Every structure is written in C-alpha cells, then in structure tokens.
Computed example of a mutant assay.
Amino acid sequence: MRLLVLFLCCIILTISCQKKTTQIPKGDFDYLIGNWERTNEQEGKVTFEYWEHTKESLYKGVGFTLQNSDTIWKEHMQLIQRDTTWTLEIQSDGEPIVPFAIIKKTANTFTAHNPSNEFPKHIAYSYFDDTLTAIVYSDDMRIPFIYWRVEE
C-alpha cells in the first residue's frame, strides 16, 4: 500500500512540475519562421535572417550581415497586427522604426509599402520550395535577397 501511495505521489509531483507551454495558433506568416541564409550574397559576406512567432499577432525577426566574423549590418523587424491590419516595422541599429503597410497578402507571399520612405518603398516576401525571397525596391532600383533554410 505504501508503495502505491508513493508511486501516486511521484506521478502527481511529476505532472505538476512539468513546464506548461502555450501554443501560439498557426498564423499568416508562419512560413517565415526559422533561420535563413542568403544565397546570393557578395563574396566574403554572409547574411542571415531569423524569424519567430512570439505572440498571436506578432512575428519578430532579425537580419544581419557578417564580413570576416564582424557584423557590418543589422536590422530588427517585426510583423505586427493591430485590429485587422498588418504592418512590417524595420529598425536598423540607431535609426528610427520605419513602418511598411501590408498591402497584399496570400498564403505564402506579402507585399509591404511605404511611399514616404526614400528606399525601399516596397518590400515583397515570397516562400516557395523551402526558399524565401525578399525583394526591396523603388521605382529605379531593385535588390533581391534569396534565402535557403538553415537547419538548426
């Protein structure tokens, strides 16, 4: 009998000490989640992007470029939903946040727009076949960032 009581106490203690995790529902931009490495970077440089889904209405990302193990560029990004509108916010180190309104969205693409920003005025992301493409552009310039998923 003592053994049974001790066994039940161990089970109750184990269950009560388990870490409780909150599941975030699948979201509109889950294809971004993970670690990405740019495939079309200049020789001698390596660029990465990392995204996570932190809250139901918030995705956070960071992008950075390394050259000779030194970080030469870094920016923080977030996709945030306010009411029914999504916004992409980008902040380079030491600079103010630049908001881009999401003007078009499908299951695996989105386009963001800020006509008052000098460059870029548009940012378009698309995901296909485990490749993430981000294109930053204005009327006279276009820069593609092509990423493949980095396994953790």
Rank of each mutant, 00 (worst) to 15 (best):
E56Y: 01
T106E: 12
I11L: 14
Q78R: 09
Q23S: 06
V98G: 00
S126I: 02
D130N: 15
T106Y: 09
S138M: 00
F119V: 03
S116P: 01
E75S: 08
H113L: 11
V5C: 10
I103Y: 11
V46M: 09
T133W: 02
F48W: 11
D130P: 01
F100W: 05
Y50H: 12
V46G: 00
S69T: 10
K26P: 13
E95H: 11
P144D: 13
T87W: 09
R38L: 15
T131F: 05
Y50Q: 14
Q78N: 07
L4P: 01
R2L: 11
I135A: 08
R82W: 00
P120M: 07
Q78D: 01
A134H: 02
N68E: 10
F145C: 03
I143H: 06
S126G: 14
D30G: 04
S16N: 04
Q78E: 12
N108C: 08
D30A: 04
A112T: 07
W73I: 01
N35M: 08
D83R: 05
K121V: 11
L132M: 12
C10Q: 03
T84S: 15
W86I: 08
C9E: 00
Q18N: 06
I72E: 06
K60H: 05
T21V: 13
K20L: 10
N35V: 12
T71P: 03
R38W: 08
I135W: 03
L32W: 05
